[in-house]
């Protein structure tokens, strides 16, 4: 897809996110020169161990966006079953329908051109609250979340405090 289509759509999404932002989410291009690289800030959902944290992440869009999804990577430390050690987020909405690494994601949950940055970020926010341990990206975290919930929550809270510089 012509990249002008992709950038126009990203402009439109950016404007819509700025004038009508969802709760706990901000996002936008990092610099004026490259509309295909965004930074996002996600608030940790209330009532979860992530509460009170602010999680920065970067989104990289392909030139044929929205035919294919962007990739999303947390820039800080996030201890979570669906986040790789390098911060890469593994969630079904970020997987193109033809590309199913684990073979048990429903097609309806996967990327489609009608999805948007806003929907991705909302999905990631709810992923923080409810991990999906069927297709873990961080096997250690998934095990801990399943078997030693208390320890998992303590570890997450410590991470949040460290990222805020209060411990």
């Amino acid at each position: 897809m012509a990249s002008s289509t992709a950038s126009r759509r990203l402009f439109l999404e950016y404007k819509n996110l700025t004038s009508n932002p969802p709760d706990g989410i901000t996002a936008g291009p990092v610099s004026e020169d490259d509309i295909f690289l965004w930074e996002a800030l996600i608030q940790g959902p209330d009532g979860t161990p992530f509460e009170g944290g602010i999680f920065p992440a970067e989104l990289k869009f392909p030139k044929d966006y929205p035919l294919n999804p962007p990739t999303m990577r947390f820039l800080g430390e996030v201890w979570h079953p669906n986040v790789y050690a390098n911060g890469l987020v593994c969630i079904s909405i970020l997987h193109a329908p033809g590309d199913d690494p684990h073979h048990y994601e429903k097609a309806s949950e996967r990327w489609s051109p009608i999805q948007s940055v806003e929907k991705i970020l909302i999905s990631v926010m709810s992923m923080l609250a409810e991990p999906n341990d069927e297709s873990p990206a961080n096997i250690e975290a998934a095990k801990m979340w399943r078997e030693r919930r208390g320890e998992f929550e303590r570890k997450v809270r410590e991470g949040v405090r460290r990222s805020l510089g209060v411990s």
């Binding site: 404007k15 819509n16 004038s19 291009p29 004026e32």
Partner: peptide, 16 residues
């Protein structure tokens, strides 16, 4: 980049 602020979008109505 400036053009991102000029594109028409359905959220324009929300300020009215």
């Amino acid at each position: 980049m400036d053009s991102s602020f000029n594109v028409a979008d359905s959220s324009d109505w929300l300020e009215t």
